[in-house]
Amino acid sequence: MIHGKTMRVFVVFAGICLAVAGVFVSAFAFSPDDRAIARGAPGAAGPSPGGVERDNAAEPGQAGAVTPGQGIAAERKPAGTLTPGQGNVVAPSPPVAGAPGQGNPVEPPPAKTVTPAPAASRGVPDLDPPVDSLQKFVSYMKEKRGEEEKYLKQRFERGVAMIHNKDLKTEREVKAYLLTPREFFCRKWNLGRAYDHAFLDIHYGVTISGPHLVGRMTSALDLKPGEKVLEIGTGSGYQAAMLAYLTDRVYTVEIIEPLAQETDRLYTGLVAAGYPEYAGIGRKADDGYYGWEEHAPFDKIIVTCGIDHIPPPLLKQLKTGGVMVIPVGPPGAQVVLKVTKNRDADGNIAIVREDIYQGRKKEAFVPFTKKGGGTHFK
Protein backbone atom coordinates (compact mmCIF):
# COMPACT_ATOMS: atom_id res chain seq x y z
CA MET A 1 0.00 0.00 0.00
CA ILE A 2 1.36 3.41 -1.07
CA HIS A 3 0.98 6.20 1.44
CA GLY A 4 -0.19 9.71 0.41
CA LYS A 5 3.25 11.34 0.80
CA THR A 6 4.95 8.60 -1.21
CA MET A 7 2.27 8.93 -3.93
CA ARG A 8 2.88 12.68 -4.23
CA VAL A 9 6.64 12.12 -4.66
CA PHE A 10 5.98 9.48 -7.33
CA VAL A 11 3.63 11.79 -9.28
CA VAL A 12 6.18 14.65 -9.23
CA PHE A 13 8.97 12.30 -10.38
CA ALA A 14 6.80 10.96 -13.22
CA GLY A 15 5.99 14.51 -14.35
CA ILE A 16 9.68 15.41 -14.47
CA CYS A 17 10.42 12.31 -16.57
CA LEU A 18 7.68 13.17 -19.04
CA ALA A 19 8.96 16.74 -19.39
CA VAL A 20 12.53 15.59 -20.05
CA ALA A 21 11.29 13.08 -22.59
CA GLY A 22 9.40 15.88 -24.36
CA VAL A 23 12.59 17.95 -24.66
CA PHE A 24 14.46 15.04 -26.24
CA VAL A 25 11.62 14.34 -28.67
CA SER A 26 11.56 18.00 -29.74
CA ALA A 27 15.32 18.14 -30.11
CA PHE A 28 15.51 15.14 -32.45
CA ALA A 29 12.22 15.46 -34.34
CA PHE A 30 13.07 16.45 -37.94
CA SER A 31 10.74 18.34 -40.20
CA PRO A 32 10.68 17.12 -43.84
CA ASP A 33 13.13 19.89 -44.79
CA ASP A 34 15.42 19.00 -41.88
CA ARG A 35 15.51 15.38 -42.96
CA ALA A 36 16.45 16.46 -46.48
CA ILE A 37 19.30 18.58 -45.09
CA ALA A 38 20.51 15.70 -42.95
CA ARG A 39 20.67 13.47 -46.03
CA GLY A 40 22.37 16.19 -48.08
CA ALA A 41 19.55 15.86 -50.60
CA PRO A 42 19.50 18.16 -53.61
CA GLY A 43 16.96 20.88 -53.09
CA ALA A 44 17.48 21.01 -49.36
CA ALA A 45 18.13 24.46 -47.97
CA GLY A 46 21.12 24.97 -45.74
CA PRO A 47 24.46 23.22 -45.49
CA SER A 48 25.07 19.61 -46.46
CA PRO A 49 27.81 17.52 -44.91
CA GLY A 50 31.12 19.32 -45.30
CA GLY A 51 29.51 22.74 -45.06
CA VAL A 52 28.79 22.99 -48.79
CA GLU A 53 25.72 25.02 -49.59
CA ARG A 54 23.12 23.19 -51.64
CA ASP A 55 20.62 24.35 -54.23
CA ASN A 56 17.41 25.88 -52.89
CA ALA A 57 15.34 24.36 -55.70
CA ALA A 58 14.20 27.83 -56.69
CA GLU A 59 11.71 28.39 -59.46
CA PRO A 60 13.50 29.26 -62.71
CA GLY A 61 13.07 32.76 -64.08
CA GLN A 62 13.00 33.74 -67.73
CA ALA A 63 16.24 33.76 -69.72
CA GLY A 64 18.67 36.23 -68.26
CA ALA A 65 16.77 36.53 -64.97
CA VAL A 66 17.95 33.60 -62.89
CA THR A 67 18.94 34.01 -59.24
CA PRO A 68 20.62 31.28 -57.17
CA GLY A 69 18.83 30.07 -54.07
CA GLN A 70 16.00 32.55 -54.58
CA GLY A 71 13.27 30.23 -53.31
CA ILE A 72 9.74 30.39 -54.58
CA ALA A 73 8.85 33.47 -52.56
CA ALA A 74 11.92 35.47 -53.55
CA GLU A 75 11.53 38.60 -55.61
CA ARG A 76 12.70 38.05 -59.19
CA LYS A 77 15.43 40.14 -60.73
CA PRO A 78 14.70 42.17 -63.85
CA ALA A 79 15.33 40.38 -67.15
CA GLY A 80 18.87 40.85 -68.34
CA THR A 81 20.51 40.30 -64.95
CA LEU A 82 22.35 37.20 -63.84
CA THR A 83 23.83 36.10 -60.56
CA PRO A 84 26.97 33.95 -60.26
CA GLY A 85 26.30 30.29 -59.59
CA GLN A 86 22.88 30.38 -61.20
CA GLY A 87 23.66 27.68 -63.71
CA ASN A 88 22.12 24.95 -61.53
CA VAL A 89 18.82 26.76 -60.91
CA VAL A 90 16.86 25.63 -63.93
CA ALA A 91 13.69 23.72 -64.59
CA PRO A 92 14.35 20.01 -64.12
CA SER A 93 14.87 18.16 -67.41
CA PRO A 94 13.92 14.56 -68.17
CA PRO A 95 16.80 12.23 -67.38
CA VAL A 96 18.74 10.85 -70.33
CA ALA A 97 19.49 7.16 -70.66
CA GLY A 98 22.95 6.39 -69.36
CA ALA A 99 23.37 9.67 -67.50
CA PRO A 100 24.81 9.43 -63.96
CA GLY A 101 22.28 9.43 -61.12
CA GLN A 102 19.31 9.22 -63.45
CA GLY A 103 17.37 6.48 -61.67
CA ASN A 104 15.29 4.48 -64.13
CA PRO A 105 16.49 5.10 -67.72
CA VAL A 106 14.01 6.86 -69.96
CA GLU A 107 13.98 7.65 -73.63
CA PRO A 108 16.12 10.78 -74.12
CA PRO A 109 14.57 13.78 -75.88
CA PRO A 110 15.85 14.60 -79.37
CA ALA A 111 19.28 16.22 -79.36
CA LYS A 112 19.10 19.97 -79.77
CA THR A 113 21.51 21.81 -82.03
CA VAL A 114 22.11 25.54 -81.69
CA THR A 115 23.51 27.21 -84.79
CA PRO A 116 25.90 30.09 -84.16
CA ALA A 117 24.44 33.54 -84.76
CA PRO A 118 25.90 35.33 -87.79
CA ALA A 119 29.02 37.28 -86.84
CA ALA A 120 27.51 40.56 -87.98
CA SER A 121 24.55 40.17 -85.58
CA ARG A 122 26.47 39.19 -82.44
CA GLY A 123 27.61 42.65 -81.46
CA VAL A 124 30.78 41.33 -79.81
CA PRO A 125 32.01 44.14 -77.56
CA ASP A 126 35.44 45.61 -78.17
CA LEU A 127 36.82 45.04 -74.69
CA ASP A 128 40.44 45.57 -73.74
CA PRO A 129 40.81 44.99 -69.97
CA PRO A 130 43.93 46.38 -68.30
CA VAL A 131 46.35 43.63 -67.31
CA ASP A 132 48.94 45.70 -65.43
CA SER A 133 46.91 46.63 -62.34
CA LEU A 134 44.31 44.88 -60.19
CA GLN A 135 42.50 48.14 -59.42
CA LYS A 136 42.44 49.24 -63.06
CA PHE A 137 41.10 45.86 -64.11
CA VAL A 138 38.37 45.84 -61.46
CA SER A 139 37.28 49.41 -62.26
CA TYR A 140 37.25 48.71 -65.99
CA MET A 141 35.19 45.51 -65.74
CA LYS A 142 32.72 47.00 -63.25
CA GLU A 143 32.14 49.87 -65.65
CA LYS A 144 31.94 47.78 -68.82
CA ARG A 145 30.26 44.65 -67.54
CA GLY A 146 28.89 45.42 -64.08
CA GLU A 147 30.52 42.32 -62.61
CA GLU A 148 31.03 41.83 -58.87
CA GLU A 149 34.25 43.19 -57.41
CA LYS A 150 35.03 40.17 -55.25
CA TYR A 151 35.01 37.82 -58.24
CA LEU A 152 36.97 40.27 -60.37
CA LYS A 153 39.69 40.39 -57.72
CA GLN A 154 39.78 36.60 -57.50
CA ARG A 155 39.92 36.33 -61.28
CA PHE A 156 42.80 38.78 -61.61
CA GLU A 157 44.80 37.24 -58.77
CA ARG A 158 44.36 33.73 -60.19
CA GLY A 159 45.41 35.09 -63.57
CA VAL A 160 48.66 36.38 -62.09
CA ALA A 161 49.38 32.89 -60.73
CA MET A 162 48.55 31.32 -64.10
CA ILE A 163 50.95 33.63 -65.92
CA HIS A 164 53.67 32.85 -63.39
CA ASN A 165 52.99 29.13 -63.87
CA LYS A 166 53.09 29.51 -67.69
CA ASP A 167 49.49 28.33 -68.03
CA LEU A 168 48.79 31.47 -70.09
CA LYS A 169 51.49 32.57 -72.51
CA THR A 170 50.19 35.28 -74.83
CA GLU A 171 48.42 38.55 -74.20
CA ARG A 172 45.41 37.29 -76.16
CA GLU A 173 45.12 34.26 -73.89
CA VAL A 174 45.44 36.39 -70.76
CA LYS A 175 42.68 38.72 -71.91
CA ALA A 176 40.44 35.79 -72.93
CA TYR A 177 40.81 34.41 -69.42
CA LEU A 178 40.18 37.79 -67.76
CA LEU A 179 37.05 38.42 -69.85
CA THR A 180 35.44 35.07 -69.01
CA PRO A 181 33.31 35.27 -65.81
CA ARG A 182 34.00 31.80 -64.40
CA GLU A 183 31.64 32.45 -61.49
CA PHE A 184 28.66 32.20 -63.84
CA PHE A 185 29.72 28.72 -64.94
CA CYS A 186 30.14 27.31 -61.42
CA ARG A 187 27.35 25.92 -59.28
CA LYS A 188 26.11 27.68 -56.20
CA TRP A 189 27.35 25.11 -53.70
CA ASN A 190 30.96 25.63 -54.78
CA LEU A 191 30.74 29.27 -55.84
CA GLY A 192 33.11 30.29 -53.06
CA ARG A 193 35.76 28.16 -54.78
CA ALA A 194 35.11 29.45 -58.31
CA TYR A 195 38.73 30.49 -58.86
CA ASP A 196 40.35 27.69 -56.85
CA HIS A 197 42.94 25.46 -58.52
CA ALA A 198 40.57 22.46 -58.51
CA PHE A 199 37.96 20.47 -60.39
CA LEU A 200 34.48 21.53 -59.18
CA ASP A 201 31.27 19.51 -59.26
CA ILE A 202 28.53 20.65 -61.68
CA HIS A 203 26.17 17.67 -61.19
CA TYR A 204 25.61 14.61 -63.41
CA GLY A 205 28.90 13.10 -62.24
CA VAL A 206 31.01 15.65 -64.12
CA THR A 207 33.11 18.69 -63.24
CA ILE A 208 34.40 22.05 -64.43
CA SER A 209 38.20 21.95 -64.73
CA GLY A 210 40.30 24.34 -62.66
CA PRO A 211 41.54 27.63 -64.16
CA HIS A 212 45.16 26.47 -64.46
CA LEU A 213 44.24 23.38 -66.48
CA VAL A 214 41.80 25.28 -68.70
CA GLY A 215 44.44 27.93 -69.32
CA ARG A 216 47.20 25.39 -70.08
CA MET A 217 45.02 23.45 -72.54
CA THR A 218 43.83 26.66 -74.21
CA SER A 219 47.40 27.87 -74.54
CA ALA A 220 48.47 24.55 -76.10
CA LEU A 221 45.79 25.01 -78.78
CA ASP A 222 47.35 28.31 -79.85
CA LEU A 223 44.03 29.39 -81.34
CA LYS A 224 44.18 32.15 -83.95
CA PRO A 225 41.39 34.58 -84.95
CA GLY A 226 39.10 33.06 -87.54
CA GLU A 227 40.15 29.46 -86.87
CA LYS A 228 37.40 26.89 -86.38
CA VAL A 229 37.59 24.99 -83.08
CA LEU A 230 35.59 22.03 -81.79
CA GLU A 231 35.25 21.27 -78.07
CA ILE A 232 34.20 17.81 -76.89
CA GLY A 233 32.58 17.96 -73.44
CA THR A 234 30.75 21.29 -73.06
CA GLY A 235 30.03 20.79 -69.37
CA SER A 236 28.83 24.07 -67.85
CA GLY A 237 30.19 26.03 -70.83
CA TYR A 238 33.29 27.69 -69.35
CA GLN A 239 35.94 26.39 -71.77
CA ALA A 240 33.90 27.28 -74.87
CA ALA A 241 33.16 30.73 -73.42
CA MET A 242 36.89 31.38 -73.05
CA LEU A 243 37.56 30.16 -76.60
CA ALA A 244 34.93 32.63 -77.87
CA TYR A 245 37.35 35.49 -77.09
CA LEU A 246 40.03 33.92 -79.27
CA THR A 247 37.95 33.09 -82.35
CA ASP A 248 34.37 33.59 -83.52
CA ARG A 249 34.06 30.01 -84.82
CA VAL A 250 33.50 27.85 -81.73
CA TYR A 251 31.57 24.56 -81.74
CA THR A 252 30.95 22.36 -78.71
CA VAL A 253 29.30 18.97 -78.05
CA GLU A 254 27.91 17.62 -74.74
CA ILE A 255 26.63 14.05 -74.34
CA ILE A 256 24.54 14.59 -71.17
CA GLU A 257 21.27 16.00 -72.43
CA PRO A 258 20.04 17.70 -69.21
CA LEU A 259 23.43 19.35 -68.73
CA ALA A 260 23.44 20.51 -72.35
CA GLN A 261 20.01 22.05 -71.78
CA GLU A 262 21.18 23.85 -68.62
CA THR A 263 24.22 25.25 -70.42
CA ASP A 264 22.13 26.34 -73.38
CA ARG A 265 19.87 28.29 -71.02
CA LEU A 266 22.92 29.78 -69.30
CA TYR A 267 24.40 30.99 -72.60
CA THR A 268 21.02 32.41 -73.60
CA GLY A 269 20.75 34.25 -70.29
CA LEU A 270 24.29 35.62 -70.57
CA VAL A 271 23.63 36.89 -74.09
CA ALA A 272 20.53 38.70 -72.77
CA ALA A 273 22.58 40.09 -69.88
CA GLY A 274 25.18 41.71 -72.13
CA TYR A 275 27.52 38.94 -73.31
CA PRO A 276 26.59 38.77 -77.03
CA GLU A 277 29.80 36.92 -77.91
CA TYR A 278 28.32 33.68 -76.54
CA ALA A 279 25.62 33.74 -79.22
CA GLY A 280 28.38 32.70 -81.62
CA ILE A 281 28.97 29.34 -79.92
CA GLY A 282 27.49 26.46 -81.93
CA ARG A 283 26.39 23.66 -79.63
CA LYS A 284 24.58 20.35 -79.65
CA ALA A 285 23.81 17.38 -77.40
CA ASP A 286 25.38 14.27 -78.88
CA ASP A 287 28.18 11.72 -78.55
CA GLY A 288 31.35 13.75 -79.03
CA TYR A 289 33.41 10.69 -79.98
CA TYR A 290 32.13 11.17 -83.51
CA GLY A 291 32.86 14.90 -83.63
CA TRP A 292 30.62 17.20 -85.64
CA GLU A 293 31.03 16.14 -89.24
CA GLU A 294 28.66 18.77 -90.57
CA HIS A 295 31.12 21.54 -89.63
CA ALA A 296 34.37 19.64 -90.25
CA PRO A 297 37.23 20.02 -90.88
CA PHE A 298 38.43 21.89 -87.80
CA ASP A 299 41.65 23.82 -87.32
CA LYS A 300 41.72 22.89 -83.64
CA ILE A 301 39.97 20.33 -81.40
CA ILE A 302 39.97 20.29 -77.59
CA VAL A 303 38.68 17.32 -75.58
CA THR A 304 37.80 17.81 -71.91
CA CYS A 305 37.13 14.17 -70.90
CA GLY A 306 39.58 11.31 -70.45
CA ILE A 307 40.08 8.40 -72.84
CA ASP A 308 42.77 5.80 -73.52
CA HIS A 309 43.17 6.50 -77.25
CA ILE A 310 42.69 9.24 -79.81
CA PRO A 311 39.23 8.85 -81.40
CA PRO A 312 39.70 8.18 -85.15
CA PRO A 313 36.64 10.28 -86.14
CA LEU A 314 38.13 13.33 -84.38
CA LEU A 315 41.51 12.79 -86.02
CA LYS A 316 39.79 12.52 -89.39
CA GLN A 317 37.90 15.80 -88.81
CA LEU A 318 41.11 17.64 -87.85
CA LYS A 319 42.71 19.60 -90.68
CA THR A 320 46.18 18.69 -91.85
CA GLY A 321 48.43 20.99 -89.85
CA GLY A 322 45.77 21.18 -87.13
CA VAL A 323 46.15 20.60 -83.39
CA MET A 324 44.11 18.52 -80.96
CA VAL A 325 44.53 18.78 -77.18
CA ILE A 326 43.24 15.66 -75.46
CA PRO A 327 43.76 13.80 -72.14
CA VAL A 328 44.87 10.23 -72.94
CA GLY A 329 45.56 7.38 -70.54
CA PRO A 330 43.88 4.96 -68.12
CA PRO A 331 41.01 6.13 -65.92
CA GLY A 332 42.20 8.66 -63.35
CA ALA A 333 45.69 9.14 -64.80
CA GLN A 334 45.64 10.90 -68.15
CA VAL A 335 48.51 12.66 -69.88
CA VAL A 336 47.28 15.83 -71.62
CA LEU A 337 48.57 15.52 -75.17
CA LYS A 338 49.03 18.10 -77.89
CA VAL A 339 48.45 16.09 -81.06
CA THR A 340 49.54 17.65 -84.36
CA LYS A 341 48.37 16.19 -87.66
CA ASN A 342 51.03 16.70 -90.34
CA ARG A 343 51.75 15.40 -93.81
CA ASP A 344 55.22 14.07 -94.59
CA ALA A 345 57.26 14.48 -97.78
CA ASP A 346 55.61 11.41 -99.32
CA GLY A 347 52.14 12.78 -98.69
CA ASN A 348 51.38 10.45 -95.78
CA ILE A 349 49.68 11.65 -92.62
CA ALA A 350 52.07 11.84 -89.67
CA ILE A 351 50.87 12.30 -86.09
CA VAL A 352 53.10 14.06 -83.56
CA ARG A 353 52.27 13.73 -79.85
CA GLU A 354 53.57 16.02 -77.12
CA ASP A 355 52.82 16.02 -73.38
CA ILE A 356 51.87 19.62 -72.55
CA TYR A 357 53.30 19.14 -69.04
CA GLN A 358 56.50 17.40 -70.27
CA GLY A 359 55.96 14.43 -67.97
CA ARG A 360 55.58 16.48 -64.81
CA LYS A 361 51.98 15.56 -64.06
CA LYS A 362 48.90 13.56 -64.93
CA GLU A 363 45.26 14.56 -64.54
CA ALA A 364 42.11 12.69 -63.51
CA PHE A 365 39.47 13.74 -66.04
CA VAL A 366 35.90 12.45 -66.05
CA PRO A 367 35.59 9.51 -68.48
CA PHE A 368 34.67 9.93 -72.14
CA THR A 369 31.17 8.41 -72.04
CA LYS A 370 29.09 7.05 -74.87
CA LYS A 371 25.40 7.11 -75.74
CA GLY A 372 23.41 4.44 -73.97
CA GLY A 373 25.86 4.18 -71.07
CA GLY A 374 29.42 3.03 -70.59
CA THR A 375 32.59 4.71 -71.79
CA HIS A 376 34.72 4.83 -74.92
CA PHE A 377 37.70 3.26 -73.12
CA LYS A 378 38.91 0.20 -75.05
Rank of each mutant, 00 (worst) to 15 (best):
A38E: 15
F28L: 14
P311I: 09
V20N: 00
F137W: 08
G101L: 10
F199W: 07
A273Q: 00
H164D: 12
Q317C: 04
L82S: 11
V328D: 09
Y267E: 01
M141D: 07
T375I: 14
A272P: 03
F185S: 06
P311V: 07
G233V: 04
V336T: 09
C17N: 03
L168Q: 08
Y251L: 04
V114Y: 02
Y278E: 01
Y204C: 15
T170K: 01
Y140R: 02
Q358V: 06
G233M: 12
R265Q: 11
T375D: 13
I2N: 13
A350P: 00
A63Y: 07
G51V: 02
M242Q: 15
K361T: 12
G22N: 06
D355R: 14
R158A: 15
E107G: 14
A79F: 11
D248R: 01
A41C: 02
R187P: 03
K300G: 07
E231S: 05
W189M: 00
T340H: 04
H3N: 07
T252I: 05
K224V: 11
P313Y: 14
K188M: 08
R76I: 09
A63V: 13
D222T: 10
T218C: 05
E354V: 00
A119K: 12
K370G: 15
Y245V: 07
R249S: 01
E254W: 10
R265V: 12
G373C: 00
Q70G: 09
L223G: 05
A91P: 08
G69K: 09
P47A: 15
A38M: 10
V325W: 06
R283A: 03
Y238E: 11
V206K: 11
P68Y: 09
V174A: 10
I302Y: 05
A194G: 13
G332H: 02
A21I: 12
I163Q: 01
D299G: 04
K338P: 02
Y204W: 13
H164L: 12
L179C: 15
G15P: 05
D196P: 11
P118C: 03
D196V: 08
V131L: 07
P49C: 08
L152V: 07
Q358N: 06
I2E: 06
D346P: 06
